[in-house]
Structures are given as structure tokens and as C-alpha cells.
């Protein structure tokens, strides 16, 4: 896969405050990427720089072969963006909003608008004022707006903010659909980690304006998962209250034991041993979540 975004040693200051420090990363074409970090880490600034709406004094950026500083409009023609606030006109209907933005993007096509409204289950609401919509509905219209001109790249800044769990699932579902069906490369900025776990191919961790880590979940696990916490729902009642077959464990519930293993390779023999004695209903590695890895990377500091 080729790189659709390349960033090398980019720094950015605002009012003498350094927002980004020597940021370097690449994004593969067709992938879904999570840009993760606490509030104020510089995630939104990266999106703005990549779109050429603000300028970086140092470093090199290449987005689809264009320099954001000099060829911003070329990038903006090929990029869709959903900002944190849905950025729609509340006193206009969903249809009028999409017609307006399609003209602004020079891609006035009512068939495309109808198709997107259908995709996002909003066709039935097209004539209603956006101001009367729920946050989830606004996000869906904002997503449709971002996709009007068939972009190659989609930037989403905190796309799930203000959404209920159902709304979050819907957005994640639509993003996956857009990526798979239209081949759109996606960069999602978020500080809510567990929502991205199921959708992203790779992650960038931004802390205090620096990219402190990046990679796929598997790569990050290999690097940071030194111990395995395995939670097993089982009828096993070990005689030794501290270890079972040499593996230390803690009882988490009536039928739940959490084993501490050194490597993933120890999982299968352990489960075989248990199955020889009794039943197992579920088993899960509890410390492999994105959030757990994030905390490990940040050295135990909490998410803001």
C-alpha cells in the first residue's frame, strides 16, 4: 500500500506555545487510522495543517502528492472533513445544506446527495431543518456532507462526541462501510479509545504535541503486552488458592478466575488443562485493550 499522507518533523506554535513538536508519521492509502491523545494534545492542529488551513513554519507535509501550504485547494477538493461541531446551517433543511455544500465543492449532483442520504438512513428527514435534528442525525448529515464530492481521504475530528452508545455504533458502522465500499482512507481523531478499537487498522498516539507511538494493535501488543491477564469463566476450583499448574491466578467471581501468564503461548496448554477437569464458557485477555496499551505508553498517566 502506498502512503497517502507523509509528515516529517512538523512543528507548530501558537502564541509562543509549542503545539506540535517534530511530528512525523505516514498514513497508508485505504486504511482507517486513529489519531489518539488527550484533549489539547494537538490532534485538531494536525488535521488543520494537513488541510492547509493553517501553516506550519517547519517540517514537510505531503497529502496525496500535494503540499498543504502551497496547494491547499487541491487537497481540500479531494478531502472530506467532519469537524467536532457538525458545522451545518441549522436554519436550512438537510437537503438545502447538502445542495449548498455540493455547489461549494463544485460537485453539484442530486443523485449523489440522494444516495448518501439513503446510505445514512436520512432520506426521510431530508426536508426537515437541521436545527431540529438530534446530535446523531446531525453527525450523519455532516458525514454525508463530507462525502459529497467523493473524497479520497476523510478526516474526522472527535466524530462520536455527544453521541449516545447507539449513535456511536451507527457512526462506526457507517465509517467502516465508507472505507470498504468507497475505498476512502480515514483519519479519526479521538480521545475516546475503546470506540476506535474495532474499526482502526493502525494508531498514532499523540501526547503533548509529540507522536509517542504508532502501529497496528498487534504491533503495539507485541511491544507493550509483557504479561497476559487471562479472565476465564470456568467451573474450576483449584486446590491451591494462589496458583494452578504453576500459573498465578486471582478469583474475580464465583466462576471467574484471572490468570497471570508470561506469554500468549501459555494460553492453549492452560485451557487444555482446565478443560480436562471441568467446563469453560468464556476466556478473554483483559489487558490487551487499546486503552490499556495507551496507559502503558503514557506511563500510567490518565486520559484527560
Amino acid at each position: 500500500m502506498t502512503n497517502i499522507i507523509e509528515v516529517k518533523k512538523v512543528s507548530k506554535q501558537f502564541n509562543q506555545r509549542e503545539i506540535l513538536k517534530d511530528v512525523s508519521f505516514t498514513i497508508k492509502k485505504g486504511s482507517i487510522n486513529g489519531l489518539l491523545g488527550p484533549n489539547g494534545a494537538g490532534k485538531t492542529t494536525i488535521i488543520r495543517l494537513l488541510n492547509g488551513v493553517i501553516e506550519a513554519p517547519t517540517g514537510m507535509m505531503n497529502v496525496m502528492g500535494f503540499n498543504p501550504k502551497l496547494q491547499g485547494d487541491e487537497i481540500r477538493k479531494r478531502v472530506g472533513i467532519v469537524t467536532e461541531s457538525a458545522s451545518l446551517y441549522h436554519d436550512m433543511s438537510a437537503w438545502d445544506n447538502l445542495i449548498f455544500f455540493s455547489k461549494i465543492y463544485g460537485y453539484s449532483n442530486t443523485e449523489r446527495i440522494t444516495h448518501l442520504l439513503e446510505q445514512f438512513d436520512m432520506l426521510g428527514f431530508k426536508d426537515q431543518m437541521v436545527g431540529s435534528f438530534s446530535t446523531g442525525m446531525k453527525k450523519r448529515i455532516a458525514l454525508a456532507k463530507a462525502l459529497l464530492h467523493n473524497p479520497d481521504l476523510l478526516f474526522l475530528d472527535e466524530p462520536t462526541n455527544g453521541l449516545d452508545p447507539e449513535g456511536i455504533n451507527e457512526v462506526i458502522h457507517y465509517l467502516r462501510k465508507v472505507n470498504q465500499e468507497e475505498g476512502v482512507t480515514i483519519l479519526i481523531c479521538s480521545h475516546v479509545l475503546h470506540q476506535l478499537e474495532t474499526i482502526c487498522d493502525s494508531y498514532l498516539f499523540l501526547v503533548d504535541g509529540r507522536i509517542v507511538e504508532n502501529g497496528t494493535l498487534a504491533e503495539l501488543e507485541d511491544k507493550y503486552l509483557k504479561k497476559i491477564n487471562l479472565l476465564v469463566e470456568t467451573g474450576l476450583k483449584p486446590l491451591n488458592s494462589q496458583t494452578y499448574k504453576g500459573h498465578p491466578y486471582k478469583r474475580r467471581g464465583a466462576n471467574q478466575l484471572e490468570f497471570l501468564l508470561s506469554t500468549k503461548e501459555e494460553i492453549t496448554p492452560l485451557l487444555s488443562n482446565i478443560l480436562n477437569e471441568t467446563w469453560i464458557h468464556t476466556c478473554e485477555i483483559t489487558n490487551r485493550s487499546l486503552e490499556a496499551i495507551y496507559f502503558t505508553i503514557r506511563g500510567g498517566r490518565g486520559v484527560e
Binding site: 488541510n51 488551513v53 481540500r76 469537524t83 457538525a86 451545518l88 461549494i104 463544485g106
Partner: peptide
């Protein structure tokens, strides 16, 4: 004030 200026500046218009 309507938060729409940002989206206009993100559009490919001069």
C-alpha cells in the same frame, strides 16, 4: 457564531 466558518474555510474556495 454558527460554527460554519470553519467548514467554509476547509472547503476548496478562495
Amino acid at each position: 457564531e454558527r460554527n460554519t466558518l470553519e467548514t467554509l474555510l476547509f472547503a476548496p474556495i478562495s
